[in-house]
């Protein structure tokens, strides 16, 4: 792992009644995509806004690039880019002019800026729309413009707060690929979302938040171990004359068998070729089935295991 880019220690943010962030600590390392995963209201935005000095937090310490982050730490801000959940652009300016304006808040040199704006448009694939006004763009393109405005000045550290909410699948893939490109170009990315698939797809390390607390952290594979299962196989029976559950329970690596109507769910704690072994067993027993599915655990299972509730809202 590279150098620490962000160090957060014991961060607490209290609103009048509510502890929105309740004593969390985490580090983000150079050139990784760091995922902040949690359901709505778990405190992700509050955390990001505190790190950015947009919010006055109650206690704790925040360091960026090894230095304390404050509202007037303009040199730290120079190396930081932020993309918020809501689109923030001027409706009176064109795509090009918008990117140019927000880039101009960081870079005053005209020539340098022009190149930056062109690069940003290319990265998010919005070059064909440079003369369009925001009103003329589809929702997905608008999000891409929003991202281009946040990263045009080539920041070393990029925060994205739920950039894919209510975005069509094609634009979403475009955005996720863009984020990976940014990382590959050497940027460090902090990415918050409540979509676990996205985190699994792009994040190098993940922190899972719930009710203002960090409930788990690690790489995707490390987290999945916490789910308690390695594999889940569901079998749809053709008829329910015979109950094969007792036989299945004795198979290798099986931790749990659960039957509801004609559906049997089998959980494993490891092993390979589990599905082949199960098919053999069912044939031997003369049990006929219509469907059979194998599932690796998801972060949703991890969340379910740790909190007793679903991550999805």
């Amino acid at each position: 792992m590279g150098d620490k880019v962000i160090e957060v220690k014991d961060l607490v943010k209290e609103y009048k009644q509510l502890r929105a962030v309740d004593g969390i600590s985490f580090d983000v390392y150079e050139k990784e995509i760091f995922g902040l995963l949690g359901p709505n209201g778990s405190g992700k935005s509050t955390t990001i806004n505190s790190v950015l000095s947009l919010l006055k937090y109650s206690s704790g310490s925040i360091k960026l690039f090894g230095r304390e982050m404050t509202p007037d730490a303009y040199d730290l801000k120079r190396d930081t880019g932020v993309i918020f959940q809501d689109v923030a652009v001027f409706s009176e300016l064109t795509v090009y002019e918008n990117i140019d304006y927000f880039c101009g808040l960081y870079i005053t040199g005209k020539k340098e800026r022009k190149k930056c704006v062109e690069d940003a448009m290319e990265l998010v694939g919005i070059g064909d729309f440079r003369k369009f006004y925001p009103k003329q763009l589809s929702g997905g393109l608008l999000r891409r413009l929003n991202i281009a405005c946040g990263i045009a000045h080539k920041p070393k550290l990029i925060f994205l707060d739920e950039p894919t909410v209510a975005v069509d699948p094609q634009s979403r893939n475009n955005i996720l690929e863009g984020i990976m490109k940014l990382r590959d170009n050497g940027a460090t990315v902090v990415y918050t979302t409540h979509y676990m698939e996205e985190v699994e797809q792009i994040c190098d390390r993940i922190v899972i938040m719930d009710k203002g607390k960090i409930i788990a952290s690690g790489t995707c594979d490390e987290l999945k171990k916490l789910a308690g299962t390695e594999e889940k196989i569901t079998v749809g029976l053709k008829n329910t004359d015979k109950d094969p559950t007792d036989g299945i329970r004795k198979l290798l690596h099986v931790t749990d068998v659960f039957k509801e109507d004609s559906i049997i769910t089998v959980s494993y704690d490891g092993g390979t070729h589990n599905i082949a072994r199960l098919i053999d067993h069912l044939r031997e027993q003369g049990v006929s089935y219509s469907t059979i599915n194998s599932q690796r655990p998801t972060l949703n299972d991890v969340f379910l295991e740790l909190t007793g509730k679903e991550l999805r809202d």
């Binding site: 950015l52 801000k77 120079r78 932020v82 923030a88 001027f90 409706s91 927000f102 808040l105 946040g150």
Partner: peptide, 18 residues
């Protein structure tokens, strides 16, 4: 336009002296 909450937020996080 300049004071819309989101544009404002973006300005505050930028390296432009407020």
């Amino acid at each position: 336009s300049f004071n819309s909450p989101m544009v404002h937020k973006r300005t505050v996080v930028s390296s432009m002296n407020f």
